[in-house]
C-alpha cells in the first residue's frame, strides 16, 4: 500500500470507529431516557457550522498554517469530507430516521440532504474529472474557451468560403451548411461529453469522410484541416462540459449551505421557544 492509500485507510478506520462510538452513545442515552435528539441536534449544528466555515477559510489563504483555523486548504478539505460524511450519521441519530413533519423540518431535512448529496457528488466529480481532462485536448483556461471557439469558427468559415471560390463548386459549402454550421455555432454535446459518449464526434467525422468522395484533390487538403478543426472544437466542448461540471456543482453546494444555516438557526429558535 502506498503512503496516500495508507492515509486514506487511516481516515476510514477512524471514521468507522467514531460512527460506532456515536451509535453506542445514542443507544446508551436513549436507554437512559435522555433527550437524545436534543444533544445530537446541537452536535449536528456544530458540525454544519464547521463545514460551512470551510467556505470562509478558503478566502483566508494568507493565514499562517500554524494558526488555529489556519492550516492549508488541502488539510481543511480532508477534515471537511471526514466531518461531512459523519454528519450524515449524526443526522440519522438526530432525526431517528423518521420522516420530517411540518414545513420547517421538511425544508431543513431537504436542505441538509441536498447539501450532503451535492457534496458527495462534487467529491466524486473532483476525483474523476481531472484525469479525464488531462487525457484529451489541450489544457485550456475555462474563461478562454469562447474565444478559442470563435477563432475555430472563423477559420472554418474562411476555409470553406475560400475553397468554394477557388474550385467554383459548392460541395464543401453544402457539407458545412448541413453538418457543421450548427456544430461550430456554440457549445454542443455537453451531456454526451459528461457521460463520455463519443458518438456525436464519430458521426461528424464520418460525415466528413463521406464528403471526401465529392471533392477534388486541392479540396482534400482543406477537408483534412476541417477534420482537424472538428476535433479541436469537440475537444473544446469536452473541456467546457467537464470544467463546467467542476464549477457548477459548487453553485449548488454553496447556496444550499447558506439555506441550511439559516433554516437550522430558525429551527433551533423554534425548538427552544416550544420546549
Amino acid at each position: 500500500m502506498t503512503g496516500p492509500q495508507q492515509r486514506r485507510m487511516g481516515w476510514i478506520l477512524v471514521g468507522l470507529l467514531v460512527a460506532t462510538a456515536l451509535g453506542i452513545t445514542n443507544h446508551i442515552l436513549t436507554a437512559s431516557h435522555v433527550r437524545t435528539p436534543y444533544y445530537f441536534g446541537w452536535l449536528l449544528l456544530v458540525m454544519v457550522v464547521f463545514l460551512a466555515a470551510f467556505g470562509v477559510r478558503k478566502k483566508l489563504t494568507f493565514l499562517p498554517p500554524t494558526l488555529i483555523f489556519g492550516g492549508n486548504a488541502a488539510n481543511w478539505l480532508r477534515f471537511h469530507i471526514f466531518i461531512g460524511l459523519l454528519s450524515a450519521v449524526v443526522f440519522g441519530h438526530h432525526t431517528g430516521l423518521r420522516l420530517p413533519t411540518g414545513f420547517v423540518e421538511t425544508t431543513l431535512a431537504a436542505l441538509f440532504l441536498g447539501t450532503f448529496l451535492s457534496g458527495v457528488t462534487g467529491l466524486i466529480l473532483s476525483r474523476v474529472i481531472p484525469a479525464r481532462l488531462t487525457s484529451r485536448g489541450e489544457e485550456v483556461l475555462f474563461e478562454r474557451i469562447p474565444m478559442f471557439r470563435s477563432r475555430l469558427r472563423t477559420e472554418v468559415e474562411e476555409l470553406v468560403a475560400a475553397a468554394a471560390e477557388k474550385s467554383g463548386d459548392s460541395a464543401l459549402v453544402e457539407f458545412y451548411e448541413t453538418h457543421l454550421k450548427e456544430f461550430f455555432s456554440g457549445p454542443k454535446h455537453i451531456l454526451e461529453h459528461l457521460i463520455a459518449n463519443k458518438r456525436p464526434r464519430r458521426r461528424l467525422l464520418q460525415h466528413a469522410q463521406n464528403c471526401r468522395r465529392f471533392l477534388n484533390e486541392p479540396e482534400h487538403a482543406q477537408l483534412d484541416r476541417i477534420t482537424q478543426l472538428i476535433q479541436m472544437k469537440d475537444d473544446l466542448d469536452f473541456h467546457l462540459a467537464l470544467q463546467g461540471a467542476l464549477k457548477m456543482w459548487l453553485f449548488v453546494h454553496l447556496p444550499l449551505t447558506c439555506g441550511l444555516l439559516i433554516v437550522a438557526v430558525f429551527h433551533l429558535l423554534l425548538v427552544h421557544a416550544f420546549t
Binding site: 478558503k58 494568507f62 499562517p64 498554517p65 492549508n72 486548504a73 488541502a74 478539505l77 473532483s126
Partner: peptide
C-alpha cells in the same frame, strides 16, 4: 505573507 506561498496553501486538492 505569514503563511508562505498562498498558491500552495490555497490548493484544496493538493
Amino acid at each position: 505573507q505569514l503563511g508562505g506561498p498562498a498558491c500552495q496553501n490555497a490548493c484544496a486538492h493538493d
